[in-house]
């Protein structure tokens, strides 16, 4: 496969994943705002931060409000991580790698793009927001389904998976980075409604409320949430799950056998140093420092993959 193609596949899937994550973040923010359980402006600021869009938003000189935050995240073209920008970039990459993906995957991506362009052509009213976000999530889910159902399990698929799980790990880590303080034992007056709202918003932003309730019941607290999002290998958006998938896919790509590629060595180290302890050890290390370290390691891994597989030269 061409290095350029691997690059295109990697970014195509990263941007699709990012679009979906941003949609989920907006849903969470809107939910908190509507239930009036938290400080809404504060919540939008942390949504922007989780989406990696706060500093660019501030540079745009817009006042922070529900409307401006939602518009920035949904459809502002100056925001490269807005849903519209993400979907356009994903589709541009899909055009670049058109020969590597199946017709079904291409058509699903192209339909996602056409629907997003229509839905996001104008400012989205509050009334239409749920429907628009649903459409986007259904569309990206269709792409994932088509990828799963029609693509050969070869290196093309591996690069798609690597892009997806790097983006997802990054997203989960950023949500934790923004909200880590509500998970600290010292800060929690357990059982207050504020904490419940904050925990809820974390779980919602990774689509994991139901799963968490099922596994941990109603009495669970901060340690359990942190464990669930970081170490639980059954939870498809946890750091451990995503890093496990990265490790698998990098191994599939290494057909030379024994000697690990540099990116493989990195991901192995990431797993054994940072994901093989229990949650108490992580709290001892310092949750914030831990998450910062994780974000740094993930971005270094992305650069190493770029080099190992000759994305650019």
């Amino acid at each position: 496969m061409l290095g350029k193609t691997a690059n295109g596949l990697f970014w195509m899937s990263r941007y699709l994943e990012r679009a979906e994550n941003t949609a989920r973040l907006i849903e969470t923010g809107q939910r908190i705002a509507l239930t009036r359980l938290g400080d809404a402006d504060e919540e939008w600021s942390s949504v922007l931060q989780s989406a990696g869009a706060l500093s660019a938003f501030q540079a745009s000189n817009e006042d922070l409000s529900k409307d401006t935050a939602i518009n920035w995240l949904l459809r502002n073209r100056d925001n490269p991580s807005s849903i519209l920008s993400c979907i356009e970039t994903a589709r541009q990459n899909a055009r670049l790698v058109r020969t590597a993906i199946t017709g079904e995957v291409w058509e699903a991506i192209n339909a996602t793009y056409m629907n997003a362009r229509t839905a996001l052509a104008r400012k989205v009213s509050e009334r239409d927001l749920p429907e628009v976000l649903r459409t986007i999530r259904q569309n990206t889910a269709l792409v994932r389904g088509m990828t799963h159902g029609t693509m050969l399990r070869n290196e093309i698929y591996d690069f798609i998976r690597i892009g997806t799980f790097l983006e997802r790990a990054d997203n989960t880590a950023r949500i934790l980075d923004v909200k880590y303080y509500v998970l600290l034992p010292s800060a929690s007056a357990v059982g207050t409604s504020l904490d419940n709202v904050q925990w809820e918003s974390i779980l919602r932003s990774v689509s994991a409320r139901g799963g968490f309730r099922m596994e941990y019941g109603a009495g669970a607290g901060t340690q359990e949430i942190a464990h669930f999002l970081i170490l639980d290998k059954r939870m498809p958006r946890s750091l451990a799950f995503c890093v496990g998938k990265l490790k698998d896919n990098l191994r599939y790509l290494n057909n030379s056998g024994s000697r690990p590629t540099p990116s493989q060595a990195q991901v192995n180290k990431l797993e054994s140093y940072y994901l093989s302890h229990d949650i108490a050890a992580i709290f001892d290390y310092g949750l914030h420092e831990y998450i910062q370290k994780m974000l740094e390691m993930l971005s270094r891994l992305a650069l190493q993959i770029e080099q190992d597989f000759r994305f650019y030269e």
Partner: peptide, 25 residues
Amino acid sequence: DQMGVELVEGHDLRVVDGRVAMRTT
């Protein structure tokens, strides 16, 4: 796509050992 061959651009190619070669992974 229909032929099942690579689609390349100039910057994917270079001359290596007297042949024109494409940069693969």
